[in-house]
Amino acid sequence: MTFRVRPATPDDFAAIYEMAKLTGGGFTNLPPDRATLVQKLARSEDSFSRTEDSQSDDLYVFVLEDPKAGIIRGTCQVFGQVGVRQAFYSYHVSTLTQTSPELGKTFRNQMLTLTTDLEGSSEVGGLFLHPQARAGGWGSLIARSRYLFIKQHRARFGDRVLAELRGVMDEAGNSPFWDGLAGRFFDMTFPEADEFNAVHGTQFIADLMPKTPIYVSLLSEQARAVMGLPHPTGRAALRMLEEENFVFDRYIDIFDGGPTVTAHTDDIRTIDESDEELIEEIAPGGKTRMLLACGRLKDFKACLASTRRAGRKGLCIDPEAAELLGVKKGDTVLAVKR
C-alpha cells in the first residue's frame, strides 16, 4: 500500500464525510455535516483554480490516497489567511503582578484576554488519518506535504502560520474549559457550540462573550487544569508541529482551551530544508527516504520515495514514486529528507 497526497475534489466527498464521522467531535475544521463539507470542497476548488498569486481567503483541502486501490485514508487543510470572513478569536494567557506593601505580599494572577492577534496568519489544520492508516509514517507525509505546498506557492501565504489543536474533552464529548468559562455565557453545551461554530463561525462568541480580561483563578479547577493542553489523540500532532519549529506562545482556543502554536513561515523546518532537485535517474535501490512534491495548484502531488544521488547534481528516485508523482527523467521535484 503506497499513498500520495493530492488536492481534494468534489468526488472525494463520501470518503471525507466518512472520516469526519470518526473524529469524535471537537474537530472544527472537519465537522460531520454534509452541507459544510460540500461548501468546503467547493471553496477549495475555487482556491486551487484562482490564478492570482497572492494571499487571500483561500482554503486548500488535500487527501491521502492509494490510487491503485482507489481508497482515501486521510485529509488535511491549509488556509491562506485567517480573519477575513470573520474575526479570528483566541484567548491570550498573560500574567498580572500586583504588590501590596501594607500586606507585604505579591500576587501573580494569570488572565485570559480575548484577542484577534493572529489575524492575517495562514493556518494548517483539519488533519485526520483513518484508524487503518495510523502506521507507516503516513501522518508525517500528509502533515509535511502542506509545507511543501506552501513553499511552492509562497506568495499565497502569510509570514506566520498557526495550528490549533483540539483541547481536552471527557468521554461524553464535553469540554471542562467550555463548562468553566464560555458555557456560563451561552445556553448550549460544548458539543452544540462546537457544531454551531463549525457551520457558522465564531461571530456569536464576539456577540456574547465579555470583552474584559478574565482572571484564571475564578475558573473551576477542572477548567484551569486543561488550559493549553491538547486532546490525548493530538499529542503526536503537537510533537510533529514542534519538530517543524512551531511554538506555543500562550494562545489557546476559546472553545476548548486547546493550544494554538505558531511559526514564522520561512522557519518551518520542511520549508527551510527542502530544495529543488533534478531527476537524473528512475531506478530502485535508493537508501535515503525523502518526501517529494511536484506540480502547482490542482496538479500538486507529494509522496515518500527511496532515493540516492545520481550524477553531479541529480537525484535517483524509485519507479513507484515516479509513477505516483507522474514525473520522468529531466523533471524537477521539491525534496526534503524524511
Rank of each mutant, 00 (worst) to 15 (best):
V226D: 08
Q222R: 13
F248N: 09
L304A: 02
R250V: 01
K40G: 10
F204W: 11
T51V: 08
H231G: 03
D66M: 05
A206C: 04
E195G: 04
H130I: 04
L165M: 11
V199A: 11
T307K: 12
G125Q: 03
T99Y: 14
T189H: 08
E320P: 00
D33F: 13
T95D: 07
S121T: 07
A133C: 15
F255T: 01
H92C: 02
L162E: 07
M169E: 11
F62T: 12
L22G: 05
A69G: 08
N245W: 00
F128G: 00
K328A: 12
F204M: 13
V261I: 11
A283E: 14
A293K: 04
L114W: 01
F248D: 04
K301N: 04
D53P: 03
E195T: 12
A263F: 07
V61N: 15
D266W: 06
L141N: 05
T202G: 08
R289W: 00
L162N: 04
K105F: 11
R224I: 07
T260W: 10
F190N: 12
L64T: 04
E192F: 06
E195M: 02
G326A: 05
V247Q: 12
A135Y: 00
S90V: 01
Q55M: 15
I268W: 12
P319C: 08
D318T: 07
G201D: 06
C76Y: 11
L41N: 04
H130R: 01
R4I: 04
D12T: 07
G326W: 09
P176Y: 07
L208S: 14
F157S: 13
L208K: 10
P191Q: 10
N197P: 01
Q203L: 09
F190Y: 14
S140F: 05
A163H: 01
T28Q: 02
L22C: 11
K105P: 03
A182S: 12
E273N: 14
L22Q: 15
I16G: 14
P319K: 01
P10K: 02
G257S: 09
R296K: 08
A87M: 13
F186K: 06
P232E: 01
G74D: 00
V333H: 09
H153Y: 00
R85Q: 13
P32W: 01
E164S: 09
D267V: 09
F27K: 05
K328V: 06
S121K: 09
A310L: 14
T28K: 05
F149A: 05
L129S: 13
G137S: 10
L141S: 09
R108D: 12
C76I: 01
T51W: 03
P101H: 10
F128V: 02
T189V: 08
L41T: 00
V199R: 09
D66L: 10
G183T: 15
I214S: 00
H264L: 05
R312P: 00
R156D: 08
D318S: 06
E244S: 06
E192N: 09
D266Q: 13
S94V: 00
L112Y: 00
T260I: 15
S100N: 13
H200K: 15
T202H: 05
P232K: 02
I279L: 15
N245Y: 02
G74N: 01
R224E: 08
R6T: 04
L218N: 08
D249T: 11
R269W: 03
T260R: 11
R289E: 08
R6V: 12
D331V: 07
T113K: 05
D58I: 07
